[in-house]
Design a protein around this nucleic acid. Structure first.
Ligand code: MN
Ligand code: MN
Ligand code: ZN
Ligand code: ZN
Lengths: 149, 149
DNA sequence: TTTCTATTGAGAATTATTATCCTTTACACA
DNA sequence: TGTGTAAAGGATAATAATTCTCAATAGAAA
């Protein structure tokens, strides 16, 4: 069974997207980083292998992945957006308001059934987001002051 | 029983915050608008009564309310943040990816129990956010193109 | 190879939010 | 009812994230 990275490459190729070394490196960086990196962080990582890469290219790749539904954007109030292209299935996040660490929640039965909501409010749902905000263990230990979400 | 607006005014007064006409108008606009307005929208509304009001003042008020935990910020990927100071108790949102309308979900049993997560991952939770993304009835009718969250 | 056009890189432009800094004013108290 | 003082306001500059622009480059189909 192919890795998420390989599957994604194949899918994009099939859809007629060209595969450049920069794009492949960006896709690899996103799909193989489980820590919900920012665009800037992926840019820094890709630059180590391809120093000529532009930040704009990373942004363009993210836009393309969003169109394809192949990346989840986690926009917090302050600072830059975080992304998860490693795990696409719906999952909740634990977000530390001290250090901004984002941890995947693996086995949660995610919130109420969307079908029920679709009917009650007439919405046609396609995705969801569940965040829990709090302090991670190390920030608790450090007695960090917390900036509410 | 006092309105949310009156209660908030009283709480802030007790905490030593001064109550200016602009501030009161901003608080009224936020607490009595259930449509999750942006800062800009509240600014426009307040300006109708107090034309001299500055946008910066609205931002400062929002910052103060965040510190007090008296406003919920809903930061979406694009555009400006949306706010809910009308309802503070935890509740989920239906967010239309066609027109950005945000609707409160009233009677949902919100997601999994935070206590369970706190134990499993060592997080000390203080708030949560549950969003459902989809198309609202009118955007479905209009066959709107949707920009994934 | 040649051709065609998607993609890239560099930097400008845009947008939302925050910071600055001087003025105004709420309000505790005389 | 005045006064002092620090909080709050107004105007605008600064910052930060993201998007746009456009000429140059390079996948990939023929
Ligand atoms: Mn995740
Ligand atoms: Mn709400
Ligand atoms: Zn932390
Ligand atoms: Zn809509």
């Amino acid at each position: 069974m192919d890795s998420r990275f390989t599957q994604l490459i194949n899918k994009l190729r099939e859809q007629g997207h060209r595969m450049t070394p920069q794009r492949a490196a960006i896709l690899k960086a996103f799909t193989e980083n489980p820590s919900h990196p920012t665009v800037e962080q992926v840019y820094e990582q890709v630059r180590r292998e391809f120093p000529m890469t532009s930040l704009a290219t990373v942004y363009k790749t993210v836009a393309m992945l969003k169109e394809q539904g192949e990346i989840i954007e986690i926009s917090l109030g302050a600072g830059s957006s975080r992304y998860d292209a490693a795990r696409l299935e719906p999952h909740a996040h634990l977000i530390c308001t001290g250090c901004s660490r984002i941890v995947d929640v693996d086995d949660s039965q995610l919130a109420v059934a969307p079908e029920y909501l679709a009917e009650k409010y007439g919405f046609n749902l396609h995705s969801q987001r569940v965040d829990y905000y709090g302090l991670c263990p190390s920030c608790q230990a450090a007695g960090q002051s917390q900036n509410q979400p």
